[in-house]
């Protein structure tokens, strides 16, 4: 098995990350602008735009996992801990807000925002765990 070094893993990550984020940006901006051109937005088109915006994000998560597997062991530990803590915080928030909604304490919350919330929780956890050295 070829041993991936930290540098080659990082290069491979960034080479995939930049185009994926560009596709995501174009898909979300172009998709939402295009949808606004319709008086009544067709459901099939809304669904297509939603799928087109989600696919790059899924791909991003896969390259993130590939990076975890290829990077050096210390960085891998920091990233995995950050990912686990970020996931735990987000799932905790989902349960809390879900129960608050069921008990009619809070109004409907857009589920979409749990996605960005996860990335913020993951990023902050990684940073606080020592990942700040990696910046």
């Amino acid at each position: 098995m070829t041993q991936q070094t930290f540098k080659s893993a990082s290069k491979r990550y960034w080479r995939a990350f930049v185009p994926i984020m560009l596709v995501y940006l174009v898909a979300t901006l172009a998709g939402s602008f295009y949808l606004k051109t319709f008086e009544v937005e067709p459901v099939w088109l809304q669904t297509t735009v939603a799928v087109a915006c989600t696919l790059p994000m899924l791909l991003f998560l896969f390259i993130q996992i590939r990076y975890f597997l290829e990077t050096d062991e210390y960085n891998q530990m920091i990233q995995l801990k950050g990912f686990a803590i970020g996931s735990a915080i987000t799932v905790g928030a989902i349960f809390l807000i879900g129960f608050l909604q069921m008990f009619h304490v809070v109004d409907q919350v857009e589920v979409f925002w749990f996605g960005p919330a996860f990335f913020i929780a993951y990023g902050l956890s990684t940073y606080l765990l020592g990942g700040r050295q990696l910046l």
């Binding site: 041993q3 070094t5 930290f6 540098k7 990077t71 050096d72 062991e73 210390y74 960085n75 530990m77 020592g130 050295q133 990696l134």
Partner: peptide, 25 residues
Amino acid sequence: ADQLGVSRQSVNAIETGKYDPSLPL
């Protein structure tokens, strides 16, 4: 770090005792 194929931060973490390397490393 370059010679070991790890990040500089890994070397720093090992040197300062914050991280114990695996047996292969």
